[in-house]
Computed example of a mutant assay.
Amino acid sequence: MSEKIKEVHANLPRTFDRTDEPWYHYLTIDIIWKVLGYTLFHPWTSWILVLCLRAQLTPYEALEMKISMAWALAMSTIGVFNIISERVAYGRAREVDLSEEVIVITGGVEGLGGLLAETYGMRSANVAVLDTKEISNEEGEEKGILYYKCDVSDAKQVEAVAAEIVEDLGVPTILINNAGIVHSKSILDSTAEDVENVFRTNTLSHFNTLRTFLPHMLREGRGTIVTVSSVLGSLGAANLSSYAASKAALLALHHSLRAELAQHQDGKEIKTILVTPGQMSTRMFADVKTPSNFLAPIVAPVDVAKDILRLVEQGESGEVAVPLYSQYIGILGVLPVGVQTLVRRWSGVDTAIVKAGLVQNEKSE
C-alpha cells in the first residue's frame, strides 16, 4: 500500500475570503508608479526610444529626437545619482550565504514575522523565532524553524534564549526586530501599565535584542539588523498614541544605531534596514478601512516581506516603505499646518480606529 500523503494546511491571505472585486479595485497608484519605473522613467527604456527614432532615420536636429535624447540623459543622470547616493549612505553590499547565517526573528509566529520565518524555513536557513506564543516541536520541525518562548521585553529572557540559540544554531548574524502589540485607547483612557506594556514590547525589546545579539555580529564582522517600525511613527493617530509613539522611537533608534555602527571599527559590514509600512492586512488592524484604495491601498505582508528578503539576501542596507505614500510621508511635515490638517481630515487617520470599532480593544501581532 502506498504511504499516506501528508496534509499541509495553508493559511491563505485574507483576500481569498472576500468576494471578487471589480478590476479597478486592484488599480492603485503603486502599480502605475511601478510600471512607469520600468518604462518611461527607466534609463534603458528611454535610450531605446532614441535608438528606435534613429532606426527610422530621424535626424538629430528633429524636435522629437532632441526631446527623447534630453529625457534619456535626464533619466540616466538621476539613475547614476541614486546609485552614488546609496553607495555613499550604505557602502558596499556584504556577502550573504543563507547556509552560513543564523536568523533571529522576534514576533515570528504570526503576521509579517511569521511569513518571513516560514519563508526562510522553507529555504532550509537557520531560523530562530522568539515569541510569547508557544509552538510545538513537531510544528517547528515541519516548518524548519526553531521556536523559543521568550518575552523580548525582558532582557534576562533574551539573554538566556540567546545562549540557547548559539548552542543550537550558531552565532546569530541576522536580527529581524518585528515583535509588536497595540493598545487602541485614547491617552486619557490609557493606564500607565498599558503604555509601559506597549513601549516594553515595541521599543525596549529592540534595545534588549541589540545589546544581546549585536556583540556577536561585531565579533563576526558581519550582520544585518532589520527594524520594523510603522508609517504611524511619522504621523501619529488618535486612539493609537502609545503605539505611534513607540514606533516613532524606533525611527530615532535606527538612525542612532547607524551612526554608532559607522563609528565602530568592526561595524562596517553590519547592514541596517528600516521598515516603515502603511496599513497591512494583518490581524492587528484587520477591520480598519483605508480612505482610498487607489492612493492608500492596504498592503499584503508578502509585499513587505519580499522587499525585506531582497535587501537581506543582497547584503544591503536600505529602507522598505510601502505603499508609495509611506515613502513620501515626510513631505507632509513641511506643508503649511492648514494643509496638514486638511490632509489628515481627508485621510481619516484620526477616525479610522473609532469607525472600525477597535477602541478599547487590544490585539497583538
Results as ranks from 00 to 15, higher is better:
2 S>V: 15
4 K>P: 08
5 I>L: 14
7 E>P: 08
16 F>D: 08
18 R>S: 14
20 D>Y: 13
28 T>F: 04
29 I>A: 09
29 I>F: 07
29 I>Q: 07
31 I>R: 10
36 L>P: 01
38 Y>A: 08
39 T>I: 03
43 P>F: 01
47 W>P: 04
47 W>D: 10
51 L>F: 13
54 R>S: 09
59 P>C: 12
60 Y>M: 14
61 E>T: 11
65 M>Y: 06
65 M>T: 11
69 M>N: 14
70 A>E: 05
73 L>T: 15
74 A>R: 10
75 M>S: 06
75 M>W: 03
76 S>Y: 02
76 S>K: 05
77 T>P: 08
79 G>I: 05
82 N>E: 15
83 I>H: 13
83 I>V: 15
84 I>L: 14
85 S>R: 15
88 V>G: 12
88 V>K: 12
89 A>Q: 14
90 Y>K: 12
93 A>N: 15
100 E>P: 06
105 I>T: 03
107 G>T: 09
108 G>A: 05
115 L>T: 05
115 L>Y: 08
117 A>S: 10
126 N>M: 07
133 K>D: 00
134 E>W: 11
135 I>G: 02
137 N>M: 14
139 E>R: 15
139 E>S: 13
142 E>N: 15
142 E>S: 14
143 K>W: 01
144 G>N: 03
148 Y>M: 00
151 D>H: 06
154 D>E: 13
158 V>W: 00
159 E>T: 10
160 A>M: 14
161 V>F: 02
162 A>S: 03
163 A>T: 11
167 E>N: 12
168 D>M: 07
170 G>R: 03
171 V>H: 10
178 N>R: 00
179 A>L: 02
180 G>M: 10
182 V>S: 11
186 S>V: 05
186 S>C: 07
188 L>S: 15
189 D>Q: 11
194 D>H: 12
195 V>A: 00
197 N>W: 15
197 N>M: 14
205 S>E: 10
205 S>M: 10
207 F>D: 13
209 T>R: 00
210 L>P: 06
210 L>D: 06
211 R>H: 09
213 F>E: 07
222 R>I: 07
224 T>D: 09
231 V>N: 02
236 G>F: 05
239 N>I: 10
240 L>F: 12
242 S>Y: 04
245 A>Y: 10
246 S>L: 00
248 A>G: 12
248 A>Q: 04
251 L>S: 11
251 L>H: 08
252 A>H: 13
260 E>I: 06
260 E>K: 04
261 L>I: 05
262 A>N: 08
264 H>N: 11
270 I>R: 02
271 K>D: 04
277 P>K: 01
278 G>M: 00
285 F>T: 13
287 D>V: 04
294 F>K: 02
295 L>I: 05
297 P>E: 00
302 V>F: 13
304 V>E: 01
310 R>F: 11
311 L>A: 03
315 G>A: 01
321 A>H: 01
321 A>N: 07
322 V>R: 04
328 Y>K: 13
329 I>T: 03
329 I>D: 01
330 G>M: 08
330 G>A: 14
332 L>H: 03
332 L>K: 09
333 G>I: 02
338 G>M: 06
340 Q>G: 07
346 W>Y: 01
347 S>G: 06
348 G>V: 00
350 D>S: 01
356 A>W: 06
357 G>K: 03
362 E>V: 11
363 K>D: 13
